[in-house]
Design a protein around this nucleic acid. Structure first.
Ligand SMILES: [Mn+2]
Ligand SMILES: [Mn+2]
Ligand SMILES: [Zn+2]
Ligand SMILES: [Zn+2]
Lengths: 145, 145
DNA sequence: AACCATAACTGTAATTATTACAATGTCGAT
DNA sequence: ATCGACATTGTAATAATTACAGTTATGGTT
């Protein structure tokens, strides 16, 4: 994503595009890796030596408040962030730790929610083993047989 | 739930039914309130004066490891627990804080997950305003018009 | 350019949830 | 009654997040 696009998106959400905010937003959009605060801080620090972790926290909270990012919580000890705020599912591989996106059926949720409830946010995620890691298991099983 | 039923379920999952474990399990099953560790501790303490919060943590971790409970994470600062381990959705009202269960379509998830991925766990949740709280909003709006 | 008000950034301290650990208690088998 | 294994407890350590106060960057006004 170009710097100008990033600035554009932040501005249309009422966010003043500071140097740090642009860098953090670009990181999220370019990497698409659902990083934690710590990962973002660790990866951006070298090129932004004065960056404070507090700024990363503040920035993500701001982004989230105007729906520029969504939070992804799968394991209870890590909060991840995603610049793709469209409705989609997340799959975390318990072996390699990778988080994958997957499409979800439109209105998959609506179905069971009672009349009179209004929804602001919906999340779908699962855990398991990705193709690569499941593959290894299979290979090992075969090798040992 | 009777004490005997609780003991039964714990035993069939290979858990030795200690006094504390039974109390915690009964609490989860009877209240169905998706409590946090803190809530469980606070509510059981009066009738179990020696109970340690560490025991609550240990017990829930044990329960979770053998799938006697599932974790419910909706907001990033609270982990809740649910003795209903069947696949169902959770709705948290942002106004009153109540967590409601709702049914989900069978295989709602499978749909988008690529070939070769194996799923161990699936979760669906959303946030919004429950019927009671949305009602109040409507009433207020009408009153002010 | 100098000045100023405002907002953003930074680093440290405080808070909170969770886990580690070591001591103590429980309980059934011998 | 003794023993060993496991469960419980209380405290200390860890880790994530937030609060806060000082500093710096920004943009407008003179
Ligand atoms: Mn995603
Ligand atoms: Mn439930
Ligand atoms: Zn994997
Ligand atoms: Zn409500």
């Amino acid at each position: 994503m170009s710097r100008q696009e990033a600035v554009q998106i932040l501005q249309t959400h009422g966010i003043k595009p500071s140097y740090q905010r642009i860098k953090i937003y670009e990181y999220l959009v370019d990497k698409k890796n659902h990083p934690t605060v710590d990962t973002i801080y660790r990866e951006l620090s070298p090129g932004l030596p004065t960056l404070s972790k507090t700024t990363v926290y503040n920035t993500l909270k701001l982004f989230h408040s105007v729906n520029v990012v969504q939070k992804v919580m799968i394991e209870d000890n890590e909060v991840r962030f995603d610049a793709d705020t469209s409705i989609h599912g997340h799959f975390k591989c318990l072996s390699c730790g990778e988080v994958y996106d997957f499409p979800v059926q439109k209105n998959a949720l609506m179905y069971g929610i009672p009349e009179g409830f209004s929804i602001t946010d919906e999340h779908i995620y699962c855990t398991g083993y990705c193709q690569d890691c499941a593959q290894v298991d299979t290979t090992l099983l075969q090798a040992s047989s």
